[in-house]
Every structure is written in C-alpha cells, then in structure tokens.
Design a protein around this nucleic acid. Structure first.
Lengths: 247, 247
DNA sequence: CATTATTGTTGACGAATCGTCAAAATATCT
DNA sequence: AGATATTTTGACGATTCGTCAACAATAATG
C-alpha cells in the first residue's frame, strides 16, 4: 500500500517530465515535429515507458492541454479576486485569458488542436473526460462573478438568458478573438490592423454593454482599470510577457 | 498557348477530383485517416501526379479549406441581399456562417485545422496567400452591410471603433461560438445545455445591442426574422440541413 | 539468504506512411 | 517517322508509429 503510493508519486513526476520534454520539442519544432522517439531520447526512460503513461501521441498532447487549462483556472481565480466592481472582475477574466494565451503560446495552440478531431478522437477516454471536467471548472469562475453582478444589481438577466448562457457568451467571444488574433497561429487577413489587447477589450465591452452590465463603457475609466490589471492584479504576468516579447 | 489553356483546364478539373476524393476520405475516416496513397487508389492517377498539384498532404488540406471559404463567401453575399433592415442583414450573415458550418462539418473543421501551425506551416506559400485573400473577401461582405447601416442611420460608430473593427468583432464572436458548439468538434463541457442556433443569435444580438445597432433586441420581432431566414433567404440550405440531420 | 513471483522497462521489429526520382509513357514538334 | 519535351508512374529509402518478447528490478516466500 505504501509502496503503491510511492509508486504513484514517482509515476506522476515522470509524467511531468515527459510532458515538459514534449513541450520543449513542440516549442522548438512544432506539433508536427513531436515524436515519441525524440521525447524518449531526451529523458532517461525508453519509448515503451512513455507508452505506459500515454496511449498515443495524441493522448500526450491532450495531457499537455489539460495541464495548461489547470494553469488557466488559477489565473481566472486570481482575476475574480480583483478589487473592484463586478464588471471589472469579468473583464479581468477576459484579460487573464488573453495573458495566458500570450504567455503560453505553445500550450494555447494545443488547446485548439485538442478540439480538432484528429487529436481529440484518438486521445484516451480518461483524458478527454478530464478535459471536460477542467473546462467546467473554468466556467465556474465566470459564473461566480456573474452571480456577484446579479446580487449587487450591476446587471439584470434578460428573461431569455440563463447565467450559464451569459458565461458561455463571454467565454466564446474571448476565445474567438484570441484564436483569430493569436500570433502563433496563422494570422488572419485583417490581423495587420488589429491588435489583440485592444480588440479583446473592445469586444468584451460591446457584449457587456449589450448585457446592460454597469457601468457602461462610456461611464467608467476603463483605461484606468486596464492599467490596474497591468500594474497590480497581473503585474507578474505582464512583466513575464514583456521579457518574453523582448527576446 | 491554346494547348496551355486546355492543359490548365484539365489540370483544374483533376485538382477538383483530387480534392473531392480527399474530402470523401476525411469525412469517412477523419483527417488522420487521410493518406495520399488512399487518394491515389481512388482516382485514375498516381501518387506522383497528386504531388504535382499539392506540395504535401497539408497543402491539400489548405486547398480544401480554401474551396470551402469560397462557398462561404457566396453564402455571405446572399445573406447581405436579405430584404430588410441593416441589422437583419448582418444577423443573416452570422446565420449563414452557422448554416455553412452545419452543412459542411468536415470542411468547417478543416478551416480550424488550417489555422493550426502543424498544418498551416507546411502548406505552400501560394495556398496560404490565397487563404488570406479569401478571408479578406469574406470581410468585405460584412463591411458592406456595416456601411449600409451607417448611411441609413441604423447605428453610429463609437468614436474608438473603425468599421473594420466592428466587422472583426462580429466575425470573431460568431467564429468562437460556432467552434465551441460545433458537433463535429470535441464538445465542450457546457455543450449539453447549449444549442448552437439559439446561442449564436443571442451572442450576435448582445453585441449588436452593445453597438447600439437598431432596432434593439427588444424592439423587433427577431423570431419572425429568423423564420424568414429559414423559409425564404436560406430555404434551400435549411432543407438540405434537415435532410442531413435525418440521416 | 536463495528462490520464486510480480512488476516494470527496454529497444528491436513489422506495418504504415511520407515524399522523391529515375525510368516509362505520352504528347508535341520538325 | 524520328527527335524532343512533357507528364506520369510506382518502387524506394527514410521516418515514425505502437507492440511485445525478452530482460531487469523489486517484493514475497520458504
């Protein structure tokens, strides 16, 4: 029994090592450049052992994707703790989403790839379920801020919308914007004129105005709020990002 | 010279044949199941000939993707001809986007895959440029309706937004919603409670309200407009879709 | 401690796929 | 017809995948 739990701990560490190495390779050579043999060559274990942890290459990719979503969860959690009104909190979550995508381009890219059938279909059931579970946890953060906004009276639910629908609207809007403006992905045609941070804030504000979530875009100093995100709430992350972009 | 143009015509037809066959295989066996050898086995030409048309498998996928965007362009064009106010036209474009994704799930999936570096990176420069060009043409349709809305006074540009930014906001919002709720892709965790058509209309209306694009959601019979889309503007497409879903 | 049982690890192997290219087939020109 | 240019072909070497029989390490037993 104790031997078992020691084993689990060792196994977990090895799984992390495999994933770290895989991420290195993907960052350097792209998803297509990832090979189980290459991973095996970089760690003190063999190919067979890797296949004891992951059923196939795609399963490994989904594993990486899930680890990334866990980190995103923590960032959302932190965003929801912003010291301000509910609309500032919800916008902070959108901003956190963007920061995460910029700070971890490789992993963000993996989230999209994992939604692609060629990868999703082949992953193990276990990891696919884990992925759904993690996405659900992500949404909980948004739902929490929504209920805060409702109780504080900052906005009212339109009769035809549930809190989950509002959360999903905000999420999918951010997702679409980030995907289409993400540097790591094939730039879309209008990209040259578009700047991710500015557009994300614009889109979010448009939708929040549409929800009548107060204070409206025109009634509040959102540039000031944005500055607070950068200098207070996500000071660390923004610093990291600057370092990354100067390289 | 005449021989050249005959050749081009023949070559074009063969390219279509290759793409049709590839699409069949992908529909049946997924992107991962697509193999150049399998395509060659289904057409009266050999592998080498396929490589005369497409530099690699990924290039073929991007080719399929582009063909799909061309069809989408036509659908957008048709949507913009809706006999109604500008907001009804812009909503029609969003609806057309959804119809296209539902009618051509395989191809829509390819559009996402093509944005993924593992595919995008390896495609030929020629086809990637073509892709950007086609996306630009898509946006033109939206921009046209936006300028119509502006001249008719249905909405006014907020000072910090350009027409292109408005077009991009609507596009990325639709894109995010469709991707996350698309059946062919890995269903996201909240999917069970969400229904694509309903959410797409909701999201679009939220953003259009945020833009102050009149008439507002509450001031107009949008259910009636939706019915018109289904029975008039896109009667053919909706019929096709029903047939597809009954199978 | 020696022996057996169990569990974990390895890397050589067959199968599948990729993209190439020299040779064969076909078309064009004189 | 014969020479030349173009197109097509499919066998080939190179990769990569995932498996599995053999091997090593550890635990259990007498």
């Amino acid at each position: 029994m104790s031997s078992k739990s020691i084993n689990n701990c060792v196994l977990k560490a090895r799984e992390e090592e495999i994933m770290d190495t895989a991420l290195e390779i993907i960052t350097a050579q792209g998803i297509a450049g990832l090979t189980i043999d290459k991973v095996a060559a970089k760690i003190p274990y063999s190919k067979g052992t890797i296949y004891n942890h992951f059923t196939c290459k795609e399963d490994l990719l989904t594993g990486l994707c899930n680890r990334s979503v866990e980190n995103l969860y923590n960032l959302f959690y932190h965003a929801a703790s912003f010291d301000g009104c509910s609309r500032e909190k919800i916008l902070a979550i959108g901003y956190a989403y963007m920061l995460h995508a910029l700070l971890n381009p490789t992993e963000f890219m993996l989230v999209i790839s994992a939604k692609t059938p060629s990868i999703g279909e082949k992953s193990s059931e276990k990891r696919r379920e884990e992925h759904l579970h993690l996405e659900g946890k992500l949404l909980e953060n948004i739902l929490h801020v929504i209920s805060e906004g409702l109780t504080s009276g900052d906005f009212k639910l339109q009769s035809h919308l549930s809190p989950a629908q509002v959360a999903f609207a905000l999420w999918s809007m951010c997702f679409g914007t980030i995907v289409l403006l993400h540097e790591s992905l094939d730039r879309c045609s209008v990209r040259t004129e578009m700047e991710l941070e500015r557009e994300l804030i614009n889109h979010a504000n448009l939708m929040l105005d549409g929800l009548n979530w107060k204070p409206y875009t025109q009634e509040h100093d959102w540039a000031g709020t944005l500055k607070k995100y950068k200098t207070e709430l996500f000071a660390d992350e923004v610093r990291q990002l600057k370092r990354l972009q100067n390289k």
